[in-house]
């Protein structure tokens, strides 16, 4: 509940910084999930999520309580991801591969994530969905993650992205149409 969030935030500002762990425990799943689907990279998502929580904690005194705390936190999360992408796009990404003569072998890093839900939906299907989300234009990816994965309302998205409701609608429509066509092309629909 937002009221509880604000109570906790006030305690942290007053000096009881250990209380911030309650905020983190409450939101880390959503934040990590958002970041992970933005970058489709587990290790990057870990680093970025950590940075986001530190940024939020350091900026806590500037939270003017004009909006829900979650909205404010998500705004920082979205902007942090945008800034990270801008910075990282300055450098070309080198795929983690060993080149052996003419063959290329992908190094499969061990991933500790458990994923029982993929038993319901085929693992290949999940892979394709993530792949297509990762390939979406940034505006579509961020809004579809907020709406269709995190299930946020149009109003919340409007506040987080700082765009008006009609723009939220238009962006959701276009993003969904784009993704639907892509999933159709990949044979999932």
């Amino acid at each position: 509940m937002s009221v509880n969030d604000i109570e906790i935030v006030n305690r942290v500002i007053e000096g009881n910084i250990e209380q911030f762990s309650l905020i983190i425990k409450k939101y880390q799943n959503m934040v990590f999930r958002y970041v992970y689907y933005q970058f489709n990279n587990y290790d990057e998502a870990l680093d970025i999520t950590q940075d986001i929580f530190i940024t939020v904690m350091e900026a806590l005194k500037s939270f003017r309580q004009e909006s829900k705390f979650s909205t404010w936190l998500y705004s920082i999360m979205v902007n942090h991801c945008k800034n990270y992408r801008k910075k990282s796009s300055k450098y070309s990404l080198v795929p983690l591969k060993i080149i052996k003569q003419e063959d290329e072998i992908d190094i499969q890093l061990q991933d500790y994530r458990e994923n029982p839900e993929t038993k319901v939906i085929n693992e290949d299907t999940i892979f394709i969905i993530k792949d297509e989300i990762a390939k979406l234009p940034e505006d579509f990816r961020e809004i579809l993650t907020l709406r269709d994965i995190d299930g946020l309302s149009y109003n919340e998205i409007s506040d987080i992205l700082n765009i008006n409701l009609s723009n939220v609608k238009v962006r959701i429509h276009r993003g969904r149409e784009y993704l639907k066509n892509r999933l159709h092309a990949r044979g999932l629909i």
Binding site: K25, I54, R113, E114, N115, E117, H184
Partner: peptide, 28 residues
């Protein structure tokens, strides 16, 4: 179906370390 597929990621169990203690340590 398309929305249902993307929404299914919400149920994906993503394991990650607890960020609470590390954040507070770095902050301090």
């Amino acid at each position: 179906k398309s929305i249902s597929l993307i929404s299914s990621l919400n149920k994906e169990n993503l394991a990650f370390p607890d960020f609470s203690q590390s954040t507070i340590i770095i902050y301090k």
